[in-house]
Nucleic acid binder design. Structure first.
Lengths: 235, 235
DNA sequence: TGTATAACGGAGGGAGGTCTCCGTTATTCC
DNA sequence: GGAATAACGGAGACCTCCCTCCGTTATACA
């Protein structure tokens, strides 16, 4: 679907300075993409993004030869914000407070971003830069959960990999309620948090997913239900 | 989007009996639709459904003038199964056991259906027959939850309307994990159940959604993220 | 200011999907 | 068996989106 690795950044002759209209257009495209991704999802039509940026499709594709490249450029900033969140949570002395803060903050970020993030459940297959940041984030999250479990702040049978559940859950809830009850996601997240406290633990009949399964569960940036197929009017 | 109410069942001259090939084709279409909806989601291409049924597009559209009409015909059966589930749950003497059984059973139904149901979160705007069944189901669920709360089997701040969370959550989790860890949904559901037990209740900072909000939160049968727009290849 | 050249942008080909029109075919009923 | 007629089915008009090609335009540098 995406042209794999071959569509990297456009090479530029070193001797010449970057053209001002090029820089301007690139910025206009990024602004438009952010807006449309938030409003219409990560699969907003490329042509429409170009139009919103007041730029021809050709220009859009020169700057970002594939949709993935555009995602990369748009998502880097929120990903770094996410990294910040985990670090703050780890800095807290109380392990449970850290978990709680992190879960709520990350759910909030997702809910308020207009729903184009899904950062916790995104794979970034062809975007090594984003993957690298994600890797860092995941290691920190693991620390956070391991510490909480070691201290008995969360139920012993809860694993990092179970966090995918609240991520998936929150993204759906936020998406469905955003326009109707913008804070409803929080109630869902709090119910989840109550369910992972040690005093509530009743035996789980299903073992946790393995990290490999979790990785495969993550969506590619498209973040679409597998239900939706290519082509045609879809809704 | 859909042709509102004008595309009802096809009128038939009373004098004549129904043609055998017509009946046969209608059945073939339903079989194909069920299979494709399960495999590819509720937006599987109409032409592909027709092809799978070994029928021309024209025939498909004569039987079901719109996608919604096809949904109606396909979804009635699983909806009735759902009604059955609630009744079984209500029949149990133990209120908590009833809630638990219902939540797990309905999550299982959704997860195993190939994901084309989303019955608990579907609105059926243009399908009065389905809406009617849903209404019955909802009243029973309300009994179930009220009874459990009255007996102290679930946390006092939990309302029927909060069930939308597990429905949304489960549909996303099931969808994302079906191919990778077909039972993972159950772990998610059990964590949720633990979170709604009375002994786990910590104060929730957000009030429950109102029934009206819940109703508006439900998806139309398309069950698509608002992200997806009309037209063209969407993934 | 002139020129080389990179960037622009839009027309348009290709792909996939929806839905209809209408000549052909299968059924029902007499 | 023979009409009358409802049902069939597929070609094709039309749509949206993706992405490229290439004549035109803007910019940087001498």
């Amino acid at each position: 679907m995406e042209n794999a690795v071959s569509d990297g950044p456009v090479p530029r002759r070193p001797g010449r300075a970057e053209r001002s209209d090029s820089i301007r257009n690139r910025d206009k495209i990024l602004v438009a993409a952010r807006a449309l991704f938030a409003a219409d999802g990560l699969n907003a039509p490329m042509d429409r993004i170009a139009a919103a940026a007041e730029v021809g499709p050709g220009t859009l594709y020169r700057h970002f030869p594939s949709r993935v490249r555009l995602w990369e450029a748009v998502l880097e900033e929120p990903l770094l914000a996410q990294l910040e969140l985990v670090d703050q949570a780890l800095a807290r002395a109380d392990a449970w407070a850290g978990v709680e803060e992190y879960v709520l903050a990350t759910c909030a970020l997702e809910a308020e971003s207009g729903g184009y993030l899904n950062l916790m459940t995104t794979r970034f297959d062809d975007a090594p830069a984003l993957r690298e940041i994600r890797g860092r984030i995941q290691r920190r999250i693991e620390e956070l959960i391991d510490r909480a479990r070691a201290e008995g702040a969360i139920r012993p049978d809860f694993t990092v990999d179970d966090l995918i559940f609240i991520a998936l859950s929150n993204s759906r809830v936020a998406e469905a309620t955003r326009a109707i009850a913008p804070r409803a996601w929080r109630r869902n997240a709090e119910l989840f948090l109550d369910g992972i406290r040690p005093e509530c633990a009743r035996p789980l009949t299903e073992p946790p997913m393995t990290p490999a399964q979790v990785a495969r569960t993550m969506m590619r940036p498209a973040a679409q239900p597998s239900a939706v197929r290519r082509g045609g009017r879809t809704e």
